[in-house]
Amino acid sequence: MSRAFADDAALFLRAARARAFVRIVGSFREPNGLIADAVFPNLGMCAFVMMYRALGAPAYYEALAVIGGILTTYWVNVLWGMGAQFYWEKQAGQLQLYFAAPCSRMAILCGMAVGGLLASMLRSLVGVALAVFVFHVQLEPFSPWQLFAVFMATMAALYTLGMIMASLFLLYGREAWHTCNAFMEPAFFLSGLYFPIRTLGAFGAVAAAILPLTLGVDALRQVLLGARSPGLMSVRLEFLALCGFAVLYFFVARWSLRYLENLSKQEGRLTQRWQ
């Protein structure tokens, strides 16, 4: 029994590592994707920073928008590199290979998440460079360990949410594609990427209960901007909530993947293109 479990775990890790490797190498082999993920989210961020400047707002708001803008790189990757990945695979006729492989589909999704996260971390350096050299963002002294913990909890919650989205593409085609598309700007608004989430009042708290990006942005701002950025909750509570989101979403993704795979097989839509 324990031997079988060890074999399964080893296979899971090997499959995840292989998928992560493909994701990292593939993303750097495609310069267009590199530019798209590294530069484009920052163009929007620059526009929002300029708007604060045009309104004559204090510099704190620019710092706030820059931190939110950097996180858009990850959200874009979660939506299009994670959520929509099975759509690309289906259109390319490769999705069936995942199902023919003897490993768990969750291993593939975990590998995609880890690979996507590592690639996005390097890409987000463009946003960091803009923050330091162009916008001269002033940060408060902070604990790097606290920053690391909050960041990783945010990413875990975001990428497990991406795993749930990915499972939708097993059954749906264009519907899920358009859903991903529609999640872009609404998520920017609901997560307060470019403004303090407290501006939304009680609505902001509701958004935080739905979208982990909201809590992640808020916690990271509290860590980096200190007292200038009063949050919805304390950093400790937001960290715990993000960890809770990650665990919850992981199990929902696992269930969703299994359920939608079966449904998709029954309806014969697993490998159907142009739906």
Binding site: L55, M184, F188
Partner: peptide, 17 residues
């Protein structure tokens, strides 16, 4: 959804400042 969200984002930025 998208245009409305952008409008509301701009409005929230203005309201905050």
């Amino acid at each position: 959804a998208r245009p409305l969200a952008v409008s509301l984002t701009l409005a929230a930025m203005y309201a905050a400042t």
